[in-house]
Computed example of a mutant assay.
Amino acid sequence: MHDPSEPQGAAVLLVNPAGQYLLHLRDANKPHICDPGTWSIPGGGRESGETAFEAAERELSEETGLAVRGLIPFTVVESVGPDGHTKGRIQVYLGAWDGDADALPVTEGIMYRWFDTATIAYLTMCPWAQRVIDLHRAERPLPPPRTDTAAAPVNRTRPHIVGVHLYLERDGQVLLGLRHPDSSFAGSIHHFLAGHCEQEPATGAVVREAWEEAGLRIRPEDLELVHVVHIPDRSGGLPRVQLVFRARAWDGEAVVREPDQCAGWAWWPLDALPEPIVPYTRAAIEGIRAGRVFTELGWT
């Protein structure tokens, strides 16, 4: 259990050599969103057994796909709600990164951008994130920006995001969900039950997502890997390895448990898949039917 005296949230302030800050525009209209419609920094709540540092690294990876070395503790801030009451304390870590914000995957929220302090003054800022930036401006704990014009070396190594997907087949039909129109991915398009692999084994991620999204109970030992799709991100972000697992057995019938993400579940004949459908979902189903285990899709 967490020590109640320790911050229950963690966040990361990233600064580039030009003194700009990486900010994240949060969703404005989804339910249960903290600080909706504001510019903030990557972060979130600690999970069971996590230290604040582990939570900061996980949230940064989940929200941006980044693994930034050398994060240092910077400050602790209070998150205050619209009613003026404190919602929790947040441990903020500081790091340096000099990449393309437009190339980052947007798994939550709207977008990422670099901003200098002059521009930040005109943004609708999350109050606690604004306090963090104000404090950094006053202290400047990172080395000053380089003044030479030499190009920095380019690291061609890129991390990949791992996605997990559930393939359920019954009487010649496959279970697919129709994504909610306002979903951040594939709105109004049919797709597998799916999610990102977090700090967990891939089979554990499938089990978790099946319960969270559809109320299905699956045991890890009843899963088998039946297809892998390797795709680039359509917006130029991090590439993705999509793992598709077949469940040999499960308990329950699919119900909508995340209505902001899925509008409904339905069984579709394998030879009459619905339209529109996520392209790599179709490719995976076709590959499974053909006995193939791997597809590369979208690479040029």
Rank of each mutant, 00 (worst) to 15 (best):
F115A: 08
V68A: 05
E54G: 14
V77I: 14
A254H: 11
L166Y: 04
D116G: 15
W114C: 03
H160S: 09
R240V: 13
E209R: 05
P82K: 10
H165A: 03
Q130I: 00
V154N: 08
L13H: 08
Q130D: 07
W128V: 02
T124V: 09
G65V: 03
E169P: 02
P279K: 01
V241K: 10
A52S: 15
V228D: 06
L225K: 05
W299F: 02
W299D: 02
I41F: 13
A210N: 01
E6V: 13
A28H: 10
A283L: 00
A283C: 03
L193V: 08
I133A: 03
T149E: 07
Y21V: 11
Y167L: 05
R146Q: 12
L13K: 09
A247P: 01
G287V: 03
V164L: 00
E6A: 14
A11F: 05
G264I: 01
P127T: 10
A210Y: 00
A55G: 04
G195T: 10
G43L: 09
V162L: 09
L22T: 12
L243R: 15
P17C: 14
G177N: 11
E57V: 13
P17D: 15
R46V: 11
V77T: 13
P82A: 12
V164M: 03
W299R: 09
A11V: 09
R257H: 12
F192P: 03
Y280F: 15
P279N: 05
H180Y: 04
L142K: 05
L123Y: 08
T149V: 13
K30E: 13
E200K: 13
A151W: 00
V68Q: 04
L270F: 07
I277S: 00
L123Q: 15
S48R: 14
F294N: 01
I90S: 03
D27E: 14
Y93P: 04
F294T: 05
R131K: 12
G264R: 14
R289S: 08
G44Q: 09
S183F: 02
R257V: 02
I120V: 15
L225Y: 04
E169H: 03
E78A: 14
R208K: 06
E253R: 13
H2Y: 13
L60T: 14
E78N: 11
F74L: 14
E221I: 07
Q261N: 12
G65H: 06
H24Q: 14
L25C: 03
V80D: 03
E108D: 09
G252P: 04
G45N: 07
G37E: 06
A11R: 06
R179H: 10
V80T: 14
T75Y: 03
H32P: 01
D233P: 07
R137F: 10
H32M: 12
I218H: 00
G204F: 06
D83H: 12
G163Y: 08
E78D: 13
R131S: 12
I189E: 05
A214N: 02
G172S: 04
F185C: 02
W267C: 05
A18D: 13
G195L: 06
V132G: 11
S183Q: 00
A202D: 04
R156P: 00
